[in-house]
Design a protein around this nucleic acid. Structure first.
Length: 293
DNA sequence: AAACAACCCAACCGCCAAGGG
DNA sequence: CCCCTTGGCGGTTGGGTTGTT
């Protein structure tokens, strides 16, 4: 019934690949290369569809594939990038040489979700579910508190660090950072920031002032759309960072929070792309702070 | 030891865009 | 233009594995 002709033929084998099949595919690709995947099964002597061959090669057989546990650096990068671009696994994978989108996707769906999930020993009102967390795409990264540790040994810390505070979530539209491609009303951000962070009335926040933009840069990247129960959570780490911001203690701010990326993924996926930080913005931001990765 | 639950992850599915005829 | 093929992508599945009772 499906319209994919390649996988509908009765003789086509499916399921796990045998070592013999792997060997056939490796031998063929390494000697002939791959131009047209639909031709590969016949020429390689495989009873698979071309699509399956392609997937097998790209995800598992190609020589530059990298297997095994993700390094802490990779974990940090995945979390940061996911906060920036959401479930664009291929894009995330492009930043991790040798890793595939499938592997990263699986990793995210199991390992990281597990870390963010409850149980929490202390009851918290209006605590969002893990599904809600992933739906809204709020994740945080911090070197000292979170990602440089063996997370498997410390899940409660992770959980508490991320979501246990009932404070309002601070959002910031990163389009205001560089003033380009800003199709949203960036003027709302300073007021929101002002109110959320609790600056003194005589302290002003002008997004267009370069020194403030620069100073704000390190913790970087909070975005708009503060709606729903998930927005009512602010990590102690972020509280600390915002307190540093409030006091203009930018160095402390950077140290306490080298890299945060929050992005309302749901909003972005509903046609609100213009409010999300562009990937080039994110990449520029990340490359500016390699130590935070 | 057995039964069950939870988790992992390789592979598949469906959709989409690009490109050629 | 339209149609078809192909490759690429993210979402999802389900069999195998591991953990728990």
């Amino acid at each position: 019934m499906g319209h994919h002709t390649c996988c509908n033929q009765q003789k086509v084998k499916r399921g796990l690949w045998s070592p013999e099949e792997d060997e056939k595919l490796i031998r063929y690709i390494t000697t002939h290369g791959y131009g047209c995947w639909s031709e590969v099964p016949d020429k390689a002597g495989l009873q698979r569809c071309g699509k399956s061959c392609r997937l097998r090669w790209i995800n598992y057989l190609r020589p530059d594939i990298r297997r095994g546990r993700f390094s802490p650096e990779e974990e940090k990068l995945i979390i940061s990038l996911h906060g920036a671009v959401g479930n664009r696994w291929a894009h995330i994978a492009s930043h991790l040489p040798g890793r595939t989108d499938n592997e990263i996707k699986n990793y995210w769906n199991s390992w990281i979700k597990k870390k963010i999930r409850k149980p929490t020993p202390t009851p918290v009102t209006n605590k969002p579910t893990s599904d809600q967390h992933s739906q809204f795409g709020f994740y945080a990264s911090n070197q000292g508190d979170f990602l440089n540790q063996d997370l498997a040994s410390n899940p409660p810390v992770v959980q508490e660090t991320l979501f246990s505070s009932p404070s309002p979530l601070f959002m910031f539209d990163t389009n205001s950072l560089d003033g380009q491609n800003s199709t949203t009303d960036g003027n709302q951000t300073p007021e929101f920031f002002h109110e959320s962070v609790g600056l003194n009335p005589d302290q002003t926040w002008h997004m267009n002032q370069q020194d403030q933009v620069q100073a704000f840069h390190p913790p970087a990247c909070f975005t708009t759309s503060c709606t729903g129960p998930d927005s009512n959570y602010l990590s102690p780490l972020l509280e600390q960072t915002i307190e540093s911001m409030r006091l203009n203690e930018w160095v402390e701010c950077q140290q306490s929070c080298p890299s945060f990326l929050f992005w309302d993924q749901a909003e972005g996926s509903q046609g609100g792309e213009d409010i999300a930080p562009s990937s080039s913005n994110i990449e520029t931001m990340l490359s500016s702070y390699p130590s935070s990765l």
